[in-house]
Design a binder for these strands. Sequence first.
DNA 1: GTCTATAACGTGATAGAC
DNA 2: GTCTATCACGTTATAGAC
Lengths: 210, 210
Amino acid sequence: MAVKKVKPANDTSTEEKIKNAARVVFFKKGFAATRTRDIAEEAGINLALLNYYFRSKEKLFDIIMLETIMNFFKSISVVFNMEDTTLENKIETIANGYIDLLKANPDIPLFLLSELKMQPDEFVAKMGVKEIVMKSVFLKQFQQGIKEGKITPIHPLHFIINLLGMTVFPFVASPIIKGIGDLSTKQFNDLMDERKRLIPKWIKAMLKAK
Amino acid sequence: MAVKKVKPANDTSTEEKIKNAARVVFFKKGFAATRTRDIAEEAGINLALLNYYFRSKEKLFDIIMLETIMNFFKSISVVFNMEDTTLENKIETIANGYIDLLKANPDIPLFLLSELKMQPDEFVAKMGVKEIVMKSVFLKQFQQGIKEGKITPIHPLHFIINLLGMTVFPFVASPIIKGIGDLSTKQFNDLMDERKRLIPKWIKAMLKAK
DNA sequence: GTCTATAACGTGATAGAC
DNA sequence: GTCTATCACGTTATAGAC
């Protein structure tokens, strides 16, 4: 038993409570529209404690932002670099994994995209996203498919854009989608579940389109 | 000659200058991060004039927001309801038109999606987006295609999501896309131009995927 | 209509008691 | 570590002269 922990901090430590609250509020409203008072209230603690633990709103934000990006790209990067799965398998894994992730955290993609736009270099450039994607097994398999004539030649970015777009876009545009289809959140999520099965089929068809 | 104008206001009237400036700043930074001083400076006028013409930051924002939504949905709604063009033609027209529109106004989609999320009912529900899309010729043609066995049966929303996603998503995610591909704005725009030709092909393939 | 000056308010951050 | 009270500052909005 007795699992060793690096930090004694459990989920109900004050620091963790503040971070959890910060995620909720930042994800929902973005940096500028968030007031430190909102976070304190959400965390059920005093406003002064927030500054005691994190010095400033911006420092707290940067921590949340970095953790969130890491989390998001880590998961995709792992799948992208699996050696022993086919390209098709990877597409399925990504569609499945991300849709579940986004159903559980629907506010994150729009949050990330909005805040990344504000400071593109601060995060995007630094993280070496370029290398992670362009040197991945995933990309090599894609280019191999082209060489073998199994895939219609296109710029790899089109492929990435379409896979990501089909998966992420509905969550980014959920208010409009829900509005058009008059969907409840449950109905919307069911539709997203359908896409787990459909996206791989569509991508496959797309890759062969002439 | 002598074109009659409803309002004498030309493009350099103070009111119009403020609105133009407001568009620039709101689109780039969103409501919360925008300071009325930024708008005044961008417009080259005094801060007090902004309140003289529009009463408050929020009132000015609502005007810009409404106009922008109208503009965006008006253009799609026209295409959606053309009686004498095929479904394929409509897809081409939308991909072409929107990509040009978004190249010229790359900040708008992320702006709209972010702000719509803040007040979903304020705008989405009111505008009858549901009716516009679901009762369109576009949709009827799609369902006719299913009936005739030319299109694999799926929920129409999947179709809308994919068409919109392929077209709009890259602009929403442009910082990441540019980061991954190490693209300049020019290179990015060229890639988007390629998509005008590719999206109709992909959508066509998608509609027949089994 | 347009400006300067300033009021009124909200928010991030800190001092200091416990 | 946690709280209450308060400061310090930036921002929206207005008053009033021109």
